[in-house]
Design a protein around this nucleic acid. Structure first.
Lengths: 221, 221
DNA sequence: CACTAAAACGGAGGCGCCTCCGCTTATTAC
DNA sequence: GTAATAAGCGGAGGCGCCTCCGTTTTAGTG
């Protein structure tokens, strides 16, 4: 926001600095019984930071200014850095939160809607999630080569959520029973390849509907 | 040098900014007939910059301050950026120069020494080159995913140089004839895995000698 | 409630990145 | 030689990163 006041962007620019140094390393020691209860104010600030960062990354990409994020969260830059020693730490937390939200939504939707509708709505949300992931892509690439848990954790959870929705929809007869989660995941994956055109959102919406029609066709119900 | 005045290093830190933007892209258009002859002073500055940058990267890693490099080369920071719009551009040129030197050395050594000695001396130099490459690793990783020519160009040239030395040594009977360049390359590759201990140089020297003894053993001469 | 140790805060300060644009210099034409 | 002009130079300036350390806040304890 405050960045790039003259409308110029660097061509490529920097690269992570010291891969020899400590990466985030979420798997502390294979046991993290009590991760130290944070002081109330600290917890509050931390949450606020993550929330603001999520918005900022979504809006400006991973290069959003950390100082701006701190300011918008109403804390000093020092506080941000104490909680998240590197940009990647922050990105990781935001990303995990995103995944969390996505998986949680699966449960919610399943309770509020017929199985096929739940699936459709969830796929819409999934597409938005992909878009976020796209914005974070460069940082995520580093994180995924650095922190192997991240990939297995998240992709497992997401595909699990999807499988549950699909099985429920199939069981209730709202969609055909001869496809499985990985097929659908693949189909949705095609959306990822679409370039960042401005009408990307609408197009992806149409793709989801199309896919959904395909899934409904030939359902026993 | 001027960097990090307090002895602190960031843990990981930044990542390249806009992969959407133009990467170095050496393959201009499959034809670059006359790349515009540089003005004399410009050429001088450019050469000096590359030379200084090579030293700086070797000494301080890819994170060497570009402002420091410019200063040491006796030019303004603006000049550096005009010649090399991004850090990666500069790294690429330095790296290519390194490869150039390495391959050139193969020819030189072959003329000045018996084939087996030439090979040994060259392998020593190769090991130093690997060390450089290690220093540039992070930037190179980006470059190699971005600029596909770079990898094929350089690795082809290097392994070609090695093959020539080995074949000459084998032909002259100084080393056994039942190994080829890729075997030796693999063997030398083992050195790469050695951590950045301070005695790395000596150790690698010993490894090269060891390898050389193995190659000499059973030679027909 | 008062007090205290520990935890957390926050922003100044120092550095590097990168761009822009007024000035300098090499080259070319006469 | 001189003039004209294109090419190149360089560094100030603005921004973001990250650390350090004096100040503030919280959670216990009596």
């Amino acid at each position: 926001m405050g960045a790039d006041p003259h409308g110029f962007k660097p061509h490529i620019a920097r690269v992570e600095k010291k891969l020899t140094e400590q990466p985030p390393e979420t798997t502390e020691k294979l046991e993290t019984p009590a991760p130290k209860p944070l002081r109330a104010d600290a917890q509050r600030n931390r949450d606020k930071l993550v929330e603001v960062a999520a918005q900022a990354f979504a809006a400006d990409g991973v290069d959003a200014s950390l100082e701006e994020i701190a300011k918008r969260a109403g804390v000093g830059i020092g506080t941000l850095y104490r909680h998240f020693p590197t940009r990647e730490h922050l990105v990781e937390v935001v990303y995990r939160r995103e995944v969390e939200g996505l998986c949680h939504a699966a449960g919610e939707l399943a309770q509020l809607h017929p199985a096929d509708v739940a699936l459709e709505l969830w796929m819409q949300r999934f597409v938005d999630y992909i878009a976020t992931k796209r914005g974070l892509a460069t940082s995520l690439r580093v994180l995924l080569t650095t922190n192997s848990t991240l990939f297995s954790d998240t992709s497992g959870r997401v595909s699990g959520a999807m499988r549950r929705l699909i099985e429920a929809a199939a069981a209730s007869g709202k969609i055909r029973a001869d496809v499985d989660a990985s097929d659908v995941m693949h189909a949705l994956g095609g959306i990822y390849s679409a370039p960042n055109t401005p009408d990307w959102r609408e197009r992806s919406g149409r793709l989801v509907k199309l896919l959904m029609d395909g899934l409904r066709f030939g359902a026993k119900g």
